[in-house]
């Protein structure tokens, strides 16, 4: 067992974890942050995408022990404390960017990284950004539309993201 200490959604966590536990399983089962989903566990579907030290990663391809000392952001940290949805979450709902919702947390975290770097992406940039995230329900179009609806909005990015 390994000791780890990390910051998840601005809250410190520490505990012990078996070396082979993936970051996604640790978040889900040890910390109870079950918004991070496992869709393939071989690094293709993107459902487990979380942000580690500012960069999006596949939660199934990283060990929890590797997140020692890291700052981790997950879907649970997007909305404000009072429950107010993040602009992008709101846009997903308004534009019907989710159906079953299983891929949604990974989509959101991938797009958060995109919008932090590229506040006004083109449609192609949005499509490329999510090309590593599979969705069987939407056909992606409504997700792309949701992103484009919040780009370049005053106050919308990148400060809020």
């Amino acid at each position: 067992m390994q000791e780890i200490t990390l910051l998840v959604n601005n809250r410190p966590y520490s505990g012990t974890v078996e070396a082979r536990t993936t970051l996604a399983d640790f978040l889900r089962h040890s910390l109870g942050l079950k918004g991070t989903h496992l869709g393939c566990e071989h690094g293709v579907c993107g459902a487990c995408t979380v942000i580690v030290d500012g960069a999006s990663v596949r939660g199934c391809l990283m060990l929890a022990v590797q997140a020692e000392g890291a700052i981790v952001e997950t879907v649970e940290g997007l909305a404000a404390e009072d429950g107010t949805l993040h602009l992008l979450q709101e846009a997903f709902s308004r534009e019907h960017g989710l159906q079953c919702g299983f891929c949604t947390p990974g989509m959101l975290m991938t797009l958060i990284e995109l919008l932090r770097e590229t506040p006004s992406p083109t449609e192609m940039e949005v499509r490329e950004a999510i090309s590593g995230n599979l969705c069987r329900c939407t056909g992606y179009q409504s997700i792309v539309r949701a992103v484009l609806s919040v780009t370049g909005r005053p106050g919308g990015a990148p400060g809020d993201l």
Partner: peptide, 17 residues
């Protein structure tokens, strides 16, 4: 707007796992 969306967008859905 769908009544399903809130929990699914915030990571509070309850899927089987």
């Amino acid at each position: 707007t769908r009544i399903e969306d809130g929990p699914l967008l915030t990571g509070h859905g309850e899927f089987l796992d």
